Amino acid sequence: MKAAVLFQPGQALAIEDVVISKPGPHEVLIRTAACGLCHSDLHFIEGTYPHPIPAIPGHEAAGIVEAVGSEVRTVKVGDAVVSCLSAFCGHCEYCVTGRMSLCLGGDTRRAAGDAPRITRPDGSIVNQMLNLSAFAEQMLIHEHACVKINPEMPLDRAAVIGCAVTTGAGTIFNACKVTPGETVAVVGCGGVGLATINAAKIAGAGRIIAADPIPEKRELAMKLGATDVIDASADGAAATIVEMTKGGVDHAIEAVGRPASAQLAVSVLRRGGTATILGMMPLAEKVGLSAMDLLSGKKLQGAIMGGNRFPVDIPRLVDFYIRGLLDLDSIIAERIPLSGINEGFEKMKGGASARSVIVFAQ
Protein backbone atom coordinates (compact mmCIF):
# COMPACT_ATOMS: atom_id res chain seq x y z
CA MET A 1 0.00 0.00 0.00
CA LYS A 2 1.01 3.65 -0.40
CA ALA A 3 1.76 5.68 2.71
CA ALA A 4 3.34 9.02 3.67
CA VAL A 5 6.43 8.16 5.71
CA LEU A 6 8.44 10.43 8.01
CA PHE A 7 12.13 9.51 7.76
CA GLN A 8 13.68 12.58 9.42
CA PRO A 9 12.08 15.37 11.48
CA GLY A 10 11.97 18.60 9.55
CA GLN A 11 11.92 16.88 6.17
CA ALA A 12 9.01 16.36 3.79
CA LEU A 13 7.02 13.16 4.06
CA ALA A 14 7.90 10.57 1.40
CA ILE A 15 5.18 8.63 -0.43
CA GLU A 16 6.41 5.03 -0.16
CA ASP A 17 5.20 1.48 -0.64
CA VAL A 18 4.87 -0.31 2.71
CA VAL A 19 3.60 -3.72 3.77
CA ILE A 20 0.81 -4.12 6.31
CA SER A 21 0.37 -7.24 8.42
CA LYS A 22 -2.76 -9.36 8.81
CA PRO A 23 -5.11 -8.66 11.74
CA GLY A 24 -4.32 -10.26 15.07
CA PRO A 25 -7.13 -11.54 17.33
CA HIS A 26 -8.29 -8.07 18.46
CA GLU A 27 -7.23 -6.10 15.39
CA VAL A 28 -9.12 -4.48 12.52
CA LEU A 29 -7.89 -3.83 8.98
CA ILE A 30 -9.45 -0.66 7.55
CA ARG A 31 -9.42 0.73 4.03
CA THR A 32 -8.76 4.41 4.72
CA ALA A 33 -11.28 6.69 3.00
CA ALA A 34 -10.15 10.07 4.33
CA CYS A 35 -7.74 11.59 6.83
CA GLY A 36 -7.49 15.15 8.09
CA LEU A 37 -4.23 17.05 8.46
CA CYS A 38 -3.89 17.98 12.13
CA HIS A 39 -1.42 20.37 13.73
CA SER A 40 -0.51 17.55 16.13
CA ASP A 41 0.94 15.67 13.16
CA LEU A 42 3.01 18.74 12.30
CA HIS A 43 4.52 18.73 15.80
CA PHE A 44 5.90 15.24 15.16
CA ILE A 45 6.92 16.00 11.57
CA GLU A 46 8.91 19.04 12.68
CA GLY A 47 10.44 17.19 15.64
CA THR A 48 8.88 19.38 18.34
CA TYR A 49 7.54 16.18 19.89
CA PRO A 50 9.81 13.12 19.63
CA HIS A 51 8.81 9.82 18.05
CA PRO A 52 10.74 6.79 16.76
CA ILE A 53 11.34 6.92 13.00
CA PRO A 54 10.68 5.97 10.30
CA ALA A 55 6.99 6.40 11.07
CA ILE A 56 3.70 7.07 9.34
CA PRO A 57 1.82 10.01 10.94
CA GLY A 58 -1.90 10.64 10.63
CA HIS A 59 -4.63 10.03 13.18
CA GLU A 60 -7.84 11.83 12.11
CA ALA A 61 -9.40 9.23 9.82
CA ALA A 62 -12.43 7.33 8.64
CA GLY A 63 -12.75 4.26 6.47
CA ILE A 64 -14.35 0.89 5.76
CA VAL A 65 -13.51 -2.32 7.63
CA GLU A 66 -11.87 -4.88 5.30
CA ALA A 67 -10.96 -7.66 7.76
CA VAL A 68 -11.21 -8.40 11.47
CA GLY A 69 -9.37 -10.65 13.92
CA SER A 70 -10.87 -13.75 15.47
CA GLU A 71 -11.86 -12.04 18.76
CA VAL A 72 -13.21 -8.76 17.38
CA ARG A 73 -16.80 -8.15 18.46
CA THR A 74 -17.33 -4.39 18.03
CA VAL A 75 -17.15 -4.07 14.22
CA LYS A 76 -17.51 -6.31 11.17
CA VAL A 77 -16.37 -6.33 7.56
CA GLY A 78 -18.10 -3.57 5.59
CA ASP A 79 -18.73 -1.27 8.56
CA ALA A 80 -17.97 2.44 8.22
CA VAL A 81 -15.74 3.50 11.11
CA VAL A 82 -13.97 6.50 12.58
CA SER A 83 -10.59 5.95 14.21
CA CYS A 84 -9.48 7.64 17.42
CA LEU A 85 -5.97 7.96 18.86
CA SER A 86 -7.17 7.54 22.45
CA ALA A 87 -7.32 3.76 22.18
CA PHE A 88 -8.51 2.26 25.46
CA CYS A 89 -7.82 -1.08 27.14
CA GLY A 90 -11.19 -1.27 28.92
CA HIS A 91 -9.97 -2.59 32.27
CA CYS A 92 -7.45 -0.14 33.79
CA GLU A 93 -8.29 2.34 36.56
CA TYR A 94 -8.95 5.13 34.05
CA CYS A 95 -11.25 3.03 31.89
CA VAL A 96 -13.33 1.59 34.70
CA THR A 97 -13.80 5.06 36.24
CA GLY A 98 -15.05 6.50 32.96
CA ARG A 99 -11.88 8.43 31.99
CA MET A 100 -11.11 6.45 28.87
CA SER A 101 -9.13 9.22 27.17
CA LEU A 102 -6.49 8.93 29.93
CA CYS A 103 -5.91 5.22 29.30
CA LEU A 104 -2.34 4.55 28.18
CA GLY A 105 -3.65 1.82 25.89
CA GLY A 106 -0.81 -0.61 26.51
CA ASP A 107 -2.92 -3.64 25.65
CA THR A 108 -3.88 -2.12 22.29
CA ARG A 109 -0.33 -2.33 20.89
CA ARG A 110 1.40 -5.45 19.62
CA ALA A 111 3.72 -7.04 22.18
CA ALA A 112 7.46 -6.52 21.82
CA GLY A 113 8.03 -10.01 20.45
CA ASP A 114 5.23 -9.91 17.90
CA ALA A 115 5.69 -9.08 14.24
CA PRO A 116 5.30 -5.34 13.56
CA ARG A 117 2.08 -4.08 12.02
CA ILE A 118 3.86 -2.13 9.26
CA THR A 119 7.15 -2.82 7.47
CA ARG A 120 9.03 -1.66 4.39
CA PRO A 121 9.42 -4.09 1.48
CA ASP A 122 12.90 -5.01 2.81
CA GLY A 123 11.34 -6.12 6.11
CA SER A 124 12.52 -3.15 8.21
CA ILE A 125 10.04 -1.75 10.74
CA VAL A 126 7.93 1.32 10.09
CA ASN A 127 6.72 2.70 13.43
CA GLN A 128 3.01 3.17 13.92
CA MET A 129 2.29 6.68 15.20
CA LEU A 130 -0.38 7.17 17.87
CA ASN A 131 -1.64 3.60 17.39
CA LEU A 132 -3.03 4.54 13.96
CA SER A 133 -0.72 5.76 11.14
CA ALA A 134 -3.59 6.99 9.01
CA PHE A 135 -1.63 8.72 6.20
CA ALA A 136 -1.85 5.40 4.39
CA GLU A 137 -4.26 3.53 2.17
CA GLN A 138 -4.93 1.04 4.97
CA MET A 139 -4.81 1.05 8.78
CA LEU A 140 -4.28 -1.97 11.02
CA ILE A 141 -5.42 -1.04 14.51
CA HIS A 142 -6.86 -2.45 17.70
CA GLU A 143 -10.64 -2.69 17.75
CA HIS A 144 -10.67 -0.24 20.66
CA ALA A 145 -9.16 2.43 18.41
CA CYS A 146 -12.20 2.71 16.13
CA VAL A 147 -15.97 2.87 16.35
CA LYS A 148 -18.77 1.96 13.94
CA ILE A 149 -20.78 4.90 12.61
CA ASN A 150 -23.96 5.46 10.62
CA PRO A 151 -23.22 4.32 7.03
CA GLU A 152 -25.08 7.39 5.69
CA MET A 153 -22.30 9.63 7.03
CA PRO A 154 -19.95 11.00 4.33
CA LEU A 155 -16.52 9.68 5.26
CA ASP A 156 -14.58 12.83 4.38
CA ARG A 157 -16.64 14.69 6.99
CA ALA A 158 -16.50 11.78 9.41
CA ALA A 159 -12.69 11.86 9.36
CA VAL A 160 -12.44 15.25 11.09
CA ILE A 161 -14.62 13.97 13.92
CA GLY A 162 -11.77 11.58 14.82
CA CYS A 163 -9.63 14.33 16.37
CA ALA A 164 -10.55 17.99 15.84
CA VAL A 165 -14.26 17.64 16.51
CA THR A 166 -13.95 15.00 19.22
CA THR A 167 -11.42 17.21 21.01
CA GLY A 168 -13.32 20.47 20.64
CA ALA A 169 -16.82 19.14 21.24
CA GLY A 170 -15.62 16.78 23.98
CA THR A 171 -14.11 19.72 25.82
CA ILE A 172 -17.43 21.55 25.78
CA PHE A 173 -19.63 18.57 26.66
CA ASN A 174 -17.33 16.48 28.88
CA ALA A 175 -14.40 18.46 30.29
CA CYS A 176 -16.17 21.80 30.78
CA LYS A 177 -19.78 20.61 30.95
CA VAL A 178 -20.94 23.95 29.55
CA THR A 179 -24.50 24.76 30.56
CA PRO A 180 -26.95 27.02 28.70
CA GLY A 181 -26.23 30.70 29.21
CA GLU A 182 -22.58 30.38 30.26
CA THR A 183 -19.95 32.46 28.49
CA VAL A 184 -17.17 30.82 26.50
CA ALA A 185 -14.00 32.27 24.97
CA VAL A 186 -12.07 30.18 22.43
CA VAL A 187 -8.48 31.20 21.70
CA GLY A 188 -7.44 29.91 18.29
CA CYS A 189 -9.81 29.16 15.42
CA GLY A 190 -8.19 26.24 13.64
CA GLY A 191 -10.00 22.93 13.29
CA VAL A 192 -10.16 22.25 17.04
CA GLY A 193 -11.13 25.81 17.93
CA LEU A 194 -13.87 25.95 15.31
CA ALA A 195 -15.28 22.64 16.51
CA THR A 196 -15.23 24.00 20.07
CA ILE A 197 -17.18 27.07 18.97
CA ASN A 198 -19.74 24.96 17.11
CA ALA A 199 -20.20 22.69 20.13
CA ALA A 200 -20.58 25.69 22.46
CA LYS A 201 -23.42 26.87 20.25
CA ILE A 202 -25.04 23.41 20.41
CA ALA A 203 -24.66 23.45 24.21
CA GLY A 204 -26.50 26.77 24.41
CA ALA A 205 -23.66 29.01 25.56
CA GLY A 206 -24.95 32.55 26.04
CA ARG A 207 -21.94 34.26 24.53
CA ILE A 208 -19.16 32.72 22.47
CA ILE A 209 -16.08 34.87 21.89
CA ALA A 210 -13.56 33.74 19.27
CA ALA A 211 -10.03 35.13 19.48
CA ASP A 212 -7.67 34.68 16.53
CA PRO A 213 -5.21 37.00 14.76
CA ILE A 214 -6.30 35.94 11.25
CA PRO A 215 -9.41 37.67 9.81
CA GLU A 216 -10.43 34.63 7.70
CA LYS A 217 -10.46 32.46 10.82
CA ARG A 218 -12.57 34.99 12.70
CA GLU A 219 -15.05 35.03 9.81
CA LEU A 220 -15.30 31.23 9.94
CA ALA A 221 -15.82 31.42 13.70
CA MET A 222 -18.85 33.67 13.22
CA LYS A 223 -20.27 31.20 10.70
CA LEU A 224 -19.88 28.36 13.20
CA GLY A 225 -21.57 30.11 16.08
CA ALA A 226 -19.34 32.78 17.63
CA THR A 227 -21.28 35.78 18.87
CA ASP A 228 -18.19 38.01 19.03
CA VAL A 229 -14.72 37.93 17.51
CA ILE A 230 -11.49 39.64 18.51
CA ASP A 231 -7.95 39.86 17.18
CA ALA A 232 -6.01 37.76 19.68
CA SER A 233 -2.78 39.61 18.87
CA ALA A 234 -4.21 43.09 19.47
CA ASP A 235 -3.01 45.10 22.45
CA GLY A 236 -5.44 44.80 25.31
CA ALA A 237 -7.25 41.76 23.87
CA ALA A 238 -7.72 40.24 27.34
CA ALA A 239 -9.01 43.50 28.81
CA THR A 240 -11.44 43.86 25.90
CA ILE A 241 -12.92 40.40 26.54
CA VAL A 242 -13.21 41.06 30.28
CA GLU A 243 -14.94 44.37 29.59
CA MET A 244 -17.39 42.99 27.01
CA THR A 245 -18.39 40.18 29.38
CA LYS A 246 -18.56 42.44 32.44
CA GLY A 247 -15.95 40.56 34.44
CA GLY A 248 -14.71 37.67 32.30
CA VAL A 249 -15.90 34.34 30.94
CA ASP A 250 -17.00 31.13 32.61
CA HIS A 251 -14.84 29.02 30.28
CA ALA A 252 -11.74 29.97 28.31
CA ILE A 253 -10.44 27.29 25.95
CA GLU A 254 -6.97 27.45 24.38
CA ALA A 255 -6.84 25.57 21.07
CA VAL A 256 -3.51 26.67 19.58
CA GLY A 257 -0.61 25.39 21.66
CA ARG A 258 1.19 28.68 22.25
CA PRO A 259 2.17 30.11 25.66
CA ALA A 260 0.74 33.53 24.78
CA SER A 261 -2.60 31.94 23.88
CA ALA A 262 -2.66 30.03 27.16
CA GLN A 263 -1.94 33.24 29.05
CA LEU A 264 -4.78 34.98 27.23
CA ALA A 265 -7.16 32.16 28.22
CA VAL A 266 -6.16 32.47 31.88
CA SER A 267 -6.42 36.28 31.79
CA VAL A 268 -10.04 36.43 30.62
CA LEU A 269 -11.57 34.24 33.35
CA ARG A 270 -14.22 35.56 35.67
CA ARG A 271 -14.25 34.61 39.36
CA GLY A 272 -14.76 30.85 39.50
CA GLY A 273 -14.02 30.42 35.80
CA THR A 274 -12.08 27.55 34.23
CA ALA A 275 -9.31 27.69 31.64
CA THR A 276 -8.83 24.55 29.55
CA ILE A 277 -5.65 24.03 27.54
CA LEU A 278 -6.03 21.85 24.45
CA GLY A 279 -3.09 22.89 22.29
CA MET A 280 0.22 20.98 22.28
CA MET A 281 2.61 23.58 23.63
CA PRO A 282 6.42 23.15 23.59
CA LEU A 283 7.26 20.50 26.17
CA ALA A 284 9.29 22.83 28.39
CA GLU A 285 6.50 25.42 28.72
CA LYS A 286 4.32 25.89 31.82
CA VAL A 287 0.98 27.56 32.40
CA GLY A 288 -0.16 28.73 35.80
CA LEU A 289 -2.58 30.69 37.94
CA SER A 290 -1.56 33.45 40.31
CA ALA A 291 -2.27 33.40 44.02
CA MET A 292 -5.08 35.91 43.48
CA ASP A 293 -6.53 33.73 40.71
CA LEU A 294 -6.64 30.81 43.11
CA LEU A 295 -8.24 32.95 45.81
CA SER A 296 -10.85 33.90 43.20
CA GLY A 297 -11.76 30.25 42.66
CA LYS A 298 -10.34 30.10 39.15
CA LYS A 299 -9.31 26.71 37.76
CA LEU A 300 -6.86 25.46 35.13
CA GLN A 301 -7.09 22.07 33.44
CA GLY A 302 -5.95 20.03 30.49
CA ALA A 303 -8.34 17.91 28.45
CA ILE A 304 -6.60 15.36 26.28
CA MET A 305 -8.83 14.63 23.30
CA GLY A 306 -11.55 16.60 25.07
CA GLY A 307 -11.94 13.97 27.78
CA ASN A 308 -13.85 11.90 25.24
CA ARG A 309 -15.56 8.53 25.57
CA PHE A 310 -15.26 7.98 21.86
CA PRO A 311 -17.40 4.80 21.42
CA VAL A 312 -20.31 6.90 22.73
CA ASP A 313 -19.32 10.41 21.64
CA ILE A 314 -18.35 9.83 18.00
CA PRO A 315 -21.68 8.25 16.94
CA ARG A 316 -23.47 11.12 18.70
CA LEU A 317 -21.39 13.69 16.81
CA VAL A 318 -22.19 11.89 13.55
CA ASP A 319 -25.87 12.16 14.47
CA PHE A 320 -25.43 15.88 15.17
CA TYR A 321 -24.04 16.32 11.64
CA ILE A 322 -26.80 14.32 9.99
CA ARG A 323 -29.41 16.36 11.91
CA GLY A 324 -27.82 19.62 10.78
CA LEU A 325 -26.51 20.71 14.18
CA LEU A 326 -22.78 20.15 13.59
CA ASP A 327 -21.23 22.12 10.71
CA LEU A 328 -18.35 20.00 9.41
CA ASP A 329 -18.58 21.36 5.87
CA SER A 330 -17.32 24.79 6.94
CA ILE A 331 -14.42 23.29 8.90
CA ILE A 332 -13.07 21.47 5.82
CA ALA A 333 -11.16 23.93 3.65
CA GLU A 334 -9.98 21.55 0.92
CA ARG A 335 -9.81 17.91 -0.13
CA ILE A 336 -6.47 16.70 -1.49
CA PRO A 337 -4.88 13.43 -2.66
CA LEU A 338 -2.16 11.71 -0.62
CA SER A 339 0.40 13.09 -3.06
CA GLY A 340 -0.51 16.63 -1.95
CA ILE A 341 0.17 16.06 1.74
CA ASN A 342 3.32 18.17 2.01
CA GLU A 343 1.66 21.12 0.27
CA GLY A 344 -1.24 20.71 2.69
CA PHE A 345 1.07 21.05 5.67
CA GLU A 346 2.70 24.12 4.13
CA LYS A 347 -0.75 25.72 3.91
CA MET A 348 -1.32 24.81 7.54
CA LYS A 349 1.83 26.70 8.52
CA GLY A 350 0.39 29.77 6.77
CA GLY A 351 -2.52 29.64 9.19
CA ALA A 352 -5.25 31.11 6.98
CA SER A 353 -7.33 27.99 6.26
CA ALA A 354 -9.10 25.44 8.46
CA ARG A 355 -8.86 21.69 7.77
CA SER A 356 -7.28 19.99 4.77
CA VAL A 357 -8.52 16.43 4.28
CA ILE A 358 -6.79 13.71 2.29
CA VAL A 359 -9.31 11.70 0.29
CA PHE A 360 -8.09 8.29 -0.85
CA ALA A 361 -9.21 6.68 -4.11
CA GLN A 362 -11.72 3.92 -3.34
Rank of each mutant, 00 (worst) to 15 (best):
K298H: 10
A303G: 08
D114P: 03
V268G: 04
A210L: 10
H26Q: 08
E254S: 09
D319T: 12
I45C: 09
G279T: 13
E16I: 10
I197D: 05
A195T: 02
P116C: 10
L29C: 08
P337R: 02
E143A: 03
S86W: 01
I118N: 06
S133N: 10
D114K: 10
A14C: 10
I332M: 04
R335Y: 12
V82H: 06
N131G: 14
D79M: 00
G351N: 07
A239V: 01
G24M: 08
R258V: 08
Q301L: 11
G324S: 01
M280K: 10
V165L: 09
V75S: 07
H59L: 13
L155W: 09
G236K: 01
S353C: 06
V187C: 12
V82R: 05
M129R: 11
P23E: 04
S70H: 09
D327Q: 06
V268I: 15
V242I: 10
S133R: 14
V178P: 05
L104D: 05
F88W: 14
H91F: 13
V96R: 08
R117N: 14
M292G: 06
E182L: 02
G10F: 14
A354H: 14
E16V: 08
A61R: 05
A12D: 15
C103Q: 13
F345R: 09
L104K: 15
E137V: 04
D293Q: 06
G162F: 02
V229E: 00
F135K: 01
L37R: 10
E66D: 06
I20L: 15
E219W: 02
D17M: 07
I304W: 14
H251Q: 05
K246F: 11
R120A: 13
V96F: 05
L155H: 11
Y321E: 00
S233R: 14
A303L: 14
V18T: 13
V287D: 02
S290T: 15
L317D: 00
V178Q: 01
M100Q: 15
T166I: 06
H43P: 00
F310A: 08
N308A: 14
V268A: 08
A291S: 11
G90S: 08
L283K: 15
G340T: 01
L338N: 04
C92A: 02
C92N: 04
K201P: 02
A112E: 12
D41T: 04
C89H: 03
Y94L: 04
